[in-house]
Design a protein around this nucleic acid. Structure first.
Length: 108
DNA sequence: ATGATGATTGTTCGC
DNA sequence: GCGAACAATCATCAT
């Protein structure tokens, strides 16, 4: 898959809260995983109330991939719906007139 | 038109 | 309250 320099094997990508640069912050939508977490988190925790967040997250992710496309369907569907929601707010964001400065990447 | 990048989404848990 | 792994995403920009 033609992708950019995605994460590597043991290379841990640093993640931070990233300060929103856009004024209205048109934010995005949530991924199917987000919905999956909301839904399965309960199930996972119920099945493994002994493990902590770290493990739960991992277990969740593992089985998530193990799910069949059909299983993810409902989640993807919600994600799809949320996508519209994000697009909607973004539209409002542009409409608001608070145009965010075009982001550049190279020269600056 | 295509690729690359970045920003974001939500959960849980601990302190 | 926040951060951090977990995964997807996908909109936007630049070339």
């Amino acid at each position: 898959m033609p992708k950019a320099a995605v994460d590597k094997d043991g290379e841990k990508i640093v993640k931070k809260p990233k300060a929103k640069k856009d004024p209205n912050a048109p934010k995005r939508a949530m991924s199917a995983f987000m919905f999956y977490s909301m839904a399965e988190r309960d199930n996972v925790k119920t099945t493994n109330p002994d493990l902590s967040f770290g493990e739960i997250g991992k277990q969740l992710g593992e089985q998530w991939r193990g799910l069949s496309a059909e299983q993810k369907k409902p989640y993807e569907q919600e994600a799809e719906d949320d996508k519209v929601r994000a697009a909607r707010e973004k539209a409002a964001y542009e409409k608001d007139g608070t145009a965010a400065p075009p982001r550049k990447k190279k020269g600056e």
